[in-house]
Design a protein around this nucleic acid. Structure first.
Lengths: 193, 193
DNA sequence: TCTAAAAGTTACAGACCGGTAACACCCTAG
DNA sequence: CTAGGGTGTTACCGGTCTGTAACTTTTAGA
């Protein structure tokens, strides 16, 4: 009898994974630590033995999701070794998959919207992780031989960020439905210069 | 002795205006009705005499901000009567002003991120108001003589939406700093077709 | 098997939340 | 002047939240 998400692993791992899922679905302020621990098949005391506060748990969740995202970049390299342009197209393809169905968008962006306290510990790591992702995309564009790599990377970033939040306000049939077409024609346009 | 935001107007108006400001700054779940009424120079009972719940207050706030935004479109027409292309450039200019300093982005998008309950009354109006804004921009692009008006409007929408959320995660010096350049070169590119 | 660490259990503190009841007040229209 | 609606005040309800204390049970390793 498995608890679905929560297999019999170490409680800390179960809490981290369950928290990621619940924060994503219901928002950070929309889910309490009691609900997390119950869904993870453990209890509140155990959570507070592994994480010094809910805020720190949030930080760890964001780091974990960023680590998962980072692994996707490794797949790009594995699928198209050395072919940076193909990897860029793979990025577009992967990004478009994030826009299907009922996804609730980017956890880091959502957290930035939700956690308005300017001194919240998560704000630091959100900025760090987002900047790291940006530099990865810039490097990919540059290595793909595109002249204005920073500008293309930033444009693609904003398009994706916008598409992921647009989905949450008007749904997947809104402007975000055209993401792939926008991104591909942008890349073509930049390559033509 | 004026209370800053809260002049001596009708309590309902003060509550509405104060709530808009506080929801924008601290988020919806980040501010309680007590804090709103206190800042508005009134009390909780008066709030509940004018709004049947906090959720309904949120809805009214979103409608109010949308109405303000709608007034800006009238300015475009007033400043450049009949010249739809100039109005489109004015839109870009106005949009870029939303990206300066420490703005917390679009209230409707933020609310969509924050209010994860699928049956929240605000979700209806967010979708309605966002779709209305989209159609306005599509019409503007079309009337400006651009062929693929829908695609340009959607691209500009996603860019702005992305820029406004990017600001909240990495700040105004991130990708959103290039918004004007992106938007203008997009418009030029669409016009050249 | 014995031991020590990890995990579970129960109860609780203190704060905040949305929302309501009852009552006193004030200000304006008639 | 008076009546009545809008407003202010205080107190309260029931619920939820993060975080902690004290204690018991389970688990894993030597």
């Amino acid at each position: 009898m498995s608890d679905g998400v929560a297999e019999r692993s170490r409680p800390r791992d179960r809490i981290l994974e369950t928290a990621q899922d619940m924060f994503h679905k219901h928002g950070i302020k929309g889910v309490g630590v009691d609900a997390i621990t119950e869904a993870a098949g453990t209890n509140k005391m155990t959570l507070y033995r592994h994480f010094e506060s809910k805020d720190e748990l949030v930080v760890e969740c964001l780091r974990a999701t960023a680590a998962k995202a980072s692994r996707i970049w490794d797949e790009f390299e594995a699928q198209h070794p050395g072919d940076k342009l193909a990897q860029l197209h793979a990025w577009v393809q992967k990004a478009s998959q994030l826009l299907s169905a009922d996804s609730r968008g980017c956890d880091m962006a959502n957290a930035a919207v939700e956690l308005t306290e300017t001194d919240h510990p998560a704000r630091r790591v959100i900025k760090e992780l987002k900047e790291a992702q940006r530099e990865k995309l810039v490097a990919l564009c540059r290595d793909a031989g595109i002249g204005q790599a920073e500008l293309l990377a930033d444009t693609l970033s904003l398009l994706l960020e916008g598409a992921r939040v647009s989905m949450q306000s008007v749904g997947a049939e809104g402007p975000s439905a055209q993401f792939v077409r926008m991104a591909e024609s942008l890349i073509a346009s930049f390559r033509a210069r």
